[in-house]
């Protein structure tokens, strides 16, 4: 039971919730850029929410299934099809042997996720299946997926009875889509060096859009903006940074750190995007505009707790529907 890459995408990697407990060694957590979408895909196929999935960028790989399987897509809409027939995100799809899954154009978002029932059989490194491209560790041999790679599944259940000789079957329910939203506003908390910004720059930060430039990747997004001014140039001794940290570069431009960020840095941290809005960040493409709005600790925590409750409810509902469906079909 596996899927095979018959055409490689630009950057498709195995990712999970990340690798924690090693930042004191300079090893960054990594993990899926859009952890909300990643967990949604897992919930749909009845997996543990932390199971490793494939993170896809456009143009994405073309996949061929070696055996019938249950899959789900989430996150960005890359106009997916199976054997040429369009299929939607946020559904459970029973695919058949030799079905080809491909993606035709980027409709919205920047990162899509593919989960399979039971998860992928991959070797973990330091407790996580996430691919660390920098040091070539974790995921599938520590690298992006290439043509002819075969990624085995953990589960060996034969799902052919669900297909009834059809090429594929979309199961009759879907996850709701109130999360994630496609809002381009992200809430931020002021960083320790927020007060280094001049009054005018503070105002500019919270009232003008910032554009994601093409110098943006899984490590961070460089933003195109009129330079912000700082009232202090005192050098900072390196200390911790995180996913969502917005740093002020010496030329007045901003960089937002993403999943593959370094563990420590020495640029002023003027703000931090709240965790609940990391998925909004993760779905931004080159050229997208983004607005920052200041919030407080309590609101940030409350939004994350809400997101967590939503995911748990989704997981319960999906698991229930899937179990019923599988039982009905003799599994």
């Amino acid at each position: 039971m596996s899927l095979k890459i018959i055409k490689a995408g630009v950057l498709d990697t195995i990712q999970d919730l990340g690798r924690y407990g090693n930042q004191q060694l300079g090893i960054n957590p990594g993990g899926a850029m859009d952890k909300f979408a990643m967990q949604t895909a897992n919930a749909l196929v009845g997996n543990d929410l932390s199971e490793a999935v494939i993170e896809l960028h456009y143009p994405a790989s073309v996949f061929l299934f070696s055996q019938p399987a249950l899959i789900a897509l989430s996150g960005a809409d890359f106009s997916a099809s199976i054997n040429g027939e369009p299929v939607a995100n946020l559904h459970v799809i029973a695919v058949n042997k030799n079905d080809a899954l491909q993606f035709h154009r980027p409709v919205n978002g920047a990162r899509a996720y593919l989960a399979v029932y039971g998860g992928f059989e991959i070797e973990k490194w330091l407790g996580s299946g996430s691919t660390n491209l920098k040091i070539k560790a974790g995921g599938f041999h520590g690298r992006g997926l290439k043509k002819s790679d075969e990624i085995p599944f953990k589960c060996s259940i034969d799902f052919s009875a669900l297909l009834n000789k059809k090429e594929f079957r979309v199961l009759p329910w879907s996850a709701d889509t109130c999360f994630p939203d496609d809002s381009k506003e992200v809430l931020v908390l002021p960083g320790n060096e927020w007060d280094r910004l001049t009054v005018t720059s503070k105002e500019m930060f919270s009232s003008t859009p910032f554009v994601v430039t093409k110098q943006s990747d899984r490590m961070g997004y460089r933003l195109g903006n009129n330079p912000l001014s700082s009232i202090s140039t005192e050098e900072l001794i390196s200390s911790a940074v995180g996913f969502g940290t917005i740093q002020l570069l010496p030329d007045g431009k901003l960089i937002v750190l993403m999943a593959d960020h370094q563990t420590t840095g020495g640029y002023p941290r003027i703000a931090h995007v709240i965790t609940a809005h990391h998925s909004r960040l993760a779905q931004l493409k080159t050229g997208d505009g983004i607005w920052f709005r200041l919030t407080d600790q309590l609101a940030a925590e409350e939004l994350l707790l809400q997101q967590d409750r939503h995911l748990l409810q989704l997981q319960n509902a999906c698991t229930f529907r899937l179990q019923q469906y599988l039982q009905k079909h003799g599994y």
């Binding site: 960083g191 320790n192 200390s239 940290t245």
Partner: peptide, 9 residues
């Protein structure tokens, strides 16, 4: 000081 909503320095 807070380092975002999930870390403290």
């Amino acid at each position: 000081f807070p380092l975002g909503d999930s870390a403290i320095t």
